[in-house]
Amino acid sequence: MESCRICASANLEVKEVPMTGAVVTFSEVVVGSSGYPLKPPYTLALIKLDEGGHLIGVLRGGGEKGADWVGKRVKVIFEAVASGEKVIQPAPWPRVFAQMLSD
């Protein structure tokens, strides 16, 4: 097996994981960029996956504004880009979302 192309770790194994984790930190994005299709405000969360590693994605199912999401359990969802969205990328790439799991 080759090394990881992102962190160069030789400890690399391809396996299916449940893609659950917890919110480490988050931010409600009020001023967004024109390049992201979702209009602000949206809540961006940094997720620590149970199997290790981090992902960033928009939180879904959060609800109330001003709540503290740190430590909340989420499931990571990958979504294909909507057809018709013009993008520059060498290969199709899904978007990451973090779905809140009920306590």
Partner: peptide, 10 residues
């Protein structure tokens, strides 16, 4: 691009 910008990061 794929892991940050693409997911709504500023």
């Amino acid at each position: 691009r794929p892991f940050e910008q693409w997911n709504g990061v500023t």
